[in-house]
Amino acid sequence: KRPMNAFIVWSRDQRRKMALENPRMRNSEISKQLGYQWKMLTEAEKWPFFQEAQKLQAMHREKYPNYK
């Protein structure tokens, strides 16, 4: 399994919040909304999620050194 990228790190919590706030919203619509919201974030707002993704990638490399 691949390490999470910055968008996935960010969207994990956002998806839960959105699903709780909009229980009738379909998963496909939630995904569209999340994509739009991510695009609207500034680079500074995205930065912590890129840092977290880099940490996860480093841990993944250490744990699975022969992963493609």
Rank of each mutant, 00 (worst) to 15 (best):
F49E: 04
E29N: 04
E29P: 08
R26L: 13
M25T: 00
K1F: 08
S11K: 01
M18E: 00
S11C: 11
F50S: 03
L20N: 15
P23M: 03
K46D: 00
P3L: 02
A53P: 03
S11G: 02
N27Y: 10
Q54F: 12
A53L: 04
L56P: 07
W38N: 15
Q54G: 06
L41D: 02
Y36R: 13
D13K: 03
R26D: 09
I30C: 06
L41E: 04
Y67T: 15
Y64Q: 14
K32W: 00
Y64C: 11
M25C: 03
T42P: 11
Q33S: 09
K32C: 01
F7L: 04
Q33C: 01
E62C: 10
P3R: 09
R61Y: 13
P48L: 08
R15L: 04
Q57A: 11
Q57D: 15
S11H: 01
N5S: 14
Q54E: 11
P23Q: 01
L34I: 08
K68G: 15
R2G: 12
K32M: 02
P23G: 07
P3N: 14
G35Y: 08
N5Q: 01
M59C: 08
E21Y: 07
F49S: 03
R15M: 03
E29W: 14
Q57W: 11
E52C: 01
R2E: 08
R61S: 12
Q57N: 03
K63F: 12
L34H: 00
E21G: 02
Q51K: 09
K1V: 00
S28M: 07
M4A: 08
M25Y: 06
M4T: 15
K32T: 05
F7A: 02
S11D: 06
R24S: 13
S11T: 03
P65Q: 12
R15T: 05
S31F: 13
K17L: 05
R26T: 15
S28A: 09
F49G: 00
R2Y: 08
H60I: 01
K63P: 13
R26E: 13
A44Q: 10
P48A: 01
L41S: 07
E52A: 08
S31R: 06
A44E: 13
I8P: 02
N27K: 07
P48Q: 02
M4D: 13
V9K: 07
S28H: 06
R24L: 09
L34P: 04
F7K: 01
Q37G: 01
P23E: 03
Q54S: 05
Q51N: 09
H60V: 10
R15Q: 04
F7C: 04
E29G: 01
R2W: 09
Q51V: 12
A19Q: 13
K17Y: 03
W10I: 02
Q14F: 04
A53S: 05
K32L: 04
E21H: 02
E45F: 07
F50W: 04
W47H: 12
A58K: 13
N66A: 15
P65H: 12
K63C: 11
Q14M: 15
I30S: 05
R15A: 05
M59R: 10
R61E: 15
F7R: 02
L41Q: 03
W10E: 02
Q57G: 14
R15V: 02
P23D: 02
L20F: 07
A58D: 09
P65L: 11
K55D: 10
N27H: 13
K17W: 01
L41I: 00
N66R: 13
R61C: 03
E29Q: 05
K63N: 11
I8C: 12
E62G: 10
Q33A: 11
S28F: 05
Q54L: 05
I30A: 02
W47A: 15
A58C: 12
Y67C: 08
T42R: 05
Q37M: 09
P48G: 05
Q14K: 07
I8A: 14
A44C: 05
L41M: 15
Q14E: 13
P65K: 11
Q37E: 12
V9S: 04
P48V: 02
L20Y: 15
A53F: 06
T42A: 02
M4I: 12
N22H: 15
I30K: 01
V9D: 08
E21N: 04
F7T: 00
Q57E: 14
F50C: 05
E29K: 02
Q14Y: 04
W38K: 05
A19S: 08
A19M: 11
K17G: 02
I30W: 02
K46A: 00
Q14T: 04
Y64S: 14
P23F: 05
N66L: 09
S28V: 05
N22T: 01
F50Y: 15
E45C: 01
A19L: 14
P48W: 02
M4Y: 04
A44R: 09
H60D: 13
R2Q: 10
K39H: 05
G35E: 15
R26Y: 09
N66T: 06
M18P: 05
N66C: 12
A6Q: 01
N5V: 03
G35H: 13
S31G: 05
F7I: 01
Q33T: 11
L20Q: 14
P23V: 05
S11Y: 03
H60C: 08
I30M: 09
N27E: 15
W10N: 14
N22E: 14
L41R: 00
A53Q: 09
I30L: 02
A53R: 00
K32A: 12
M25F: 05
M25A: 08
K68N: 09
N66V: 11
P65F: 08
T42G: 01
W10K: 04
E62M: 03
R24E: 13
E45Q: 08
W10S: 06
R24H: 14
Y36P: 10
N22Y: 09
L41P: 01
F49Q: 01
A19Y: 06
K17D: 03
F7M: 03
F49T: 05
N27V: 04
Q51W: 01
Q54Y: 09
S28C: 00
P48C: 02
G35M: 09
A53V: 02
N66F: 03
L34N: 05
Q37T: 07
L56C: 06
E45M: 01
R26V: 03
A53E: 06
Y67L: 12
I30V: 08
I8D: 15
I30P: 00
R2D: 14
W47N: 08
K63A: 12
F7D: 00
G35A: 13
T42M: 05
Q14R: 09
R24G: 15
H60S: 13
A19G: 03
W38P: 04
F49Y: 15
H60R: 11
Y64D: 15
R24T: 15
K55T: 12
Y36M: 04
L34A: 01
N27S: 10
A44Y: 04
P48M: 13
E52G: 04
Q51C: 06
L56D: 04
A53D: 02
P65A: 15
G35P: 04
Y64G: 15
Q37W: 03
E52M: 00
K46Y: 09
E62L: 08
P23C: 07
S11Q: 10
R26M: 14
N66E: 15
K68W: 07
N5L: 10
L20V: 10
P65V: 12
T42D: 15
W10L: 00
K46H: 01
K46S: 01
Q54H: 06
Q33E: 12
N22I: 03
Q51H: 06
K63V: 11
E52R: 08
E62P: 10
T42L: 03
P65T: 11
M4L: 07
K63Q: 14
T42I: 00
N22V: 05
Y67E: 15
Y36L: 14
I30Q: 00
S28G: 06
R15C: 05
N5P: 08
I30E: 02
R2N: 11
N66D: 15
K63R: 11
N22W: 01
V9N: 00
D13A: 15
E29M: 06
S31T: 13
Y67P: 10
H60T: 08
R61I: 05
K55R: 13
W47K: 14
A53M: 00
L20D: 14
E62R: 06
Y64N: 14
F49M: 00
M18Y: 09
E45W: 01
A58Y: 08
Y36T: 09
E21V: 09
F7Y: 10
S31C: 15
H60A: 10
P23A: 04
D13M: 08
N66I: 11
Q57F: 11
F49V: 04
A58Q: 07
F7S: 04
M4K: 04
G35C: 14
E43I: 06
A6V: 03
W38T: 00
